[in-house]
Design a protein around this nucleic acid. Structure first.
Length: 499
RNA sequence: CGGGAUGUGGCUCAGCUUGGUAGAGCGCUGUGUUCGGAACGCAGAGGUCGCAGGUUCAAAUCCUGUCAUCCCGACCA
């Protein structure tokens, strides 16, 4: 068994709490490579569950999976001006294809004779290689739409990294679609946005705001960007997914045209959309507590842990037997179950161990319970313990999965509501973002200009997280005056300090 | 890329001022007693003190250089 020391509380040091929790809950570890993390089996199992749910949604909406290269020729990158601007500063570049012994000392050096004619970029995102390919595939409106997703790793060379939230390499899915019309691409980007919302809320139990990014925050090269935004327990926003309507920008850059039914040559409309392992960070920050991780049952790699007790062989035979029996019954209900039979650990140590790892339900089976024909069930999210008749334990443990899934969502939703405020003056606005940590979601009027957005950001570190697609309150859609400039504003937008 | 700090068993750190046989807690291995919220005893394993030079009879300790990491700023899914 690994390290079982405690972690700081959220109140003591939220940032440290997160870092320690991610490691001690066995989600991830730092690696020998700067900025890159190792995703441990427990964390990866969580990611696999996320992938499965998302992949099913993509398939159900007509998408198929494919795979495009990790390396992208530098010249491809130079074709779309805004795209270059957005990503050039954080690209890893491959310049050689061979190493040789260093003639001037120990070790190896890139072989000067093996320099690539054209450098390759390690993909920070795949629009360019994909649109280069789509241009070959698309001739006619009959070839459209193309609805492809890929599960891949990407590299964005970040100055400062944080486990799951921002690392140089991360795992994600990126969908890339091609359409005959603007409206069809628009429908596509909104369809995916709805998948993301549904996944965040129904699977992760994380309530999200659904909205449009401002010009300043949109994807480099997009016509417009939609997003889902979650709130962490330290009251910061975290972007959990984005869906971009790319317009015809990439089609023009890669000369991707199709012949319409009327025989006219037209540029293709594009979308792209993605969610990453950052979702794991958002999940941790939304639900977990000072004892460790709290997982939503629908994504948990393990649903129930059973801790049998007993100091002598005879007692252990009894409790272990009952535990094994309960486990197989629970498995028959489709739950993943573990009986913790380690004999060097005390029951208390096992409770803490599994609580740190976020397992939704624990069943304690001790000799006193068996004498009374009961077992104790503890739920991870509230810590509540209940004594249940042995013949009702399985039904209750199954029932609790749904209850916990719903309760953690409701709790997170109540927290977000309690930390969403409307302000109308600059004094109120700055007061909301005063001090360390976040200030929750602040809903305020904005004059719609990038200049004002930048000035607000410079003054408060808060940025526009989104312009909600549906007003959070009916009055948010009423005109007003910008909180910063006093100029007319059509509607309120959501500000927050972001991860 | 600017400002600050730190590098000593797996982890957290002491030792450095004033040079003299490398330490503690946790974790790890074995073993016995334990077992209802982080059990205890006994016996063990494990460190070129970031790296390279220098001073010295002698360097974790003093000097120079270098590398790496962390924190604070500018950039970010």
């Amino acid at each position: 068994m690994s390290n079982n020391l405690g972690i700081p509380t959220r109140a003591e040091n939220y940032s440290e709490w997160y870092n320690e929790l991610v490691q001690k809950a066995d989600l991830a570890d730092y690696s020998a490579v700067r900025g890159c993390m190792v995703i441990k089996p427990h964390g990866y199992a969580l990611w696999e569950n996320m992938q499965r749910a998302l992949d099913d949604m993509f398939k159900a909406t007509g998408h198929v999976n494919a795979y495009f290269p990790l390396f992208i020729p530098k010249s491809f990158f130079e074709k779309e001006a805004e795209h270059v601007e957005g990503f050039a500063k954080e690209c890893a570049v491959v310049t050689h294809h061979r190493l040789k012994a260093n003639p001037d000392g120990p070790g190896l050096i890139p072989d000067p004779d093996a320099k690539l004619e054209e450098p390759l970029i390690v993909r920070p995102t795949s629009e360019t290689i994909i649109w280069n390919t789509y241009a070959k595939w698309i001739q006619s409106y009959r070839d459209l739409p193309i609805l492809i997703n890929q599960w891949a790793n990407v590299v964005r060379w970040e100055m400062r990294t944080r486990l799951f939230l921002r690392t140089a390499e991360f795992l994600w899915q990126e969908g890339h679609t091609a359409h005959a019309t603007y409206d069809e691409a628009e429908t596509e980007s909104l369809t995916i946005l709805e998948c993301y919302r549904k996944f965040a809320e129904d699977w992760m139990g994380v309530p999200v705001l659904v909205g449009l990014k401002s010009e300043g925050e949109k994807f480099a090269g997009a016509d417009h960007t939609y997003c889902i935004e979650a709130l962490t327990q330290d009251r910061r926003a975290i972007q959990a997914g984005t869906s971009h309507h790319l317009g015809q920008g990439f089609a023009k850059a890669f000369d991707c045209k199709f012949q319409s039914a009327e025989g006219k040559l037209e540029y293709v409309y594009a979308t792209s959309w993605g969610v990453s392992t950052r979702l794991i960070g958002a999940l941790v920050m939304a639900h977990s507590d000072d004892k460790g991780l709290i997982l939503p049952p629908k994504l948990a790699p393990l649903h129930v842990v059973i801790v049998p007790m007993g100091r002598d062989e005879e007692t252990r035979a009894r409790t272990f037997g009952v535990a094994d029996d309960l486990a197989s019954q629970l498995q028959a209900h489709g739950l993943k179950v573990k009986v913790d039979k380690r004999d060097k650990e005390s029951p208390g140590a096992k409770y803490n161990y599994w609580e740190m790892r976020g397992i939704p339900v624990r069943i304690e089976v001790g000799p006193r319970d068996l004498d009374a024909n009961v077992a104790v069930i503890a739920r991870r999210d509230t810590g509540d313990k209940e004594t249940v008749a042995l013949d009702s334990v399985v039904a209750r443990a199954v029932e609790l999965q749904g209850i916990i899934q719903s309760d953690i969502y409701q709790k997170a939703l109540a927290f977000r509501e309690a930390n969403t405020v409307r302000v109308d003056t600059w004094d109120e606005f700055t007061a909301a973002f005063d001090g360390d940590g976040g200030g929750g979601f602040v809903v305020a009027h904005w004059d719609g200009t990038t200049e004002t957005e930048d000035a607000i950001s410079a003054a408060t570190k808060a940025t526009i997280r989104c312009i909600p697609l549906v007003p959070l309150a009916p009055s948010d859609a009423e005109p007003g005056v910008c909180v910063f400039t006093g100029k007319p504003s059509a509607q309120r937008v959501v500000f927050a300090k972001a991860y």
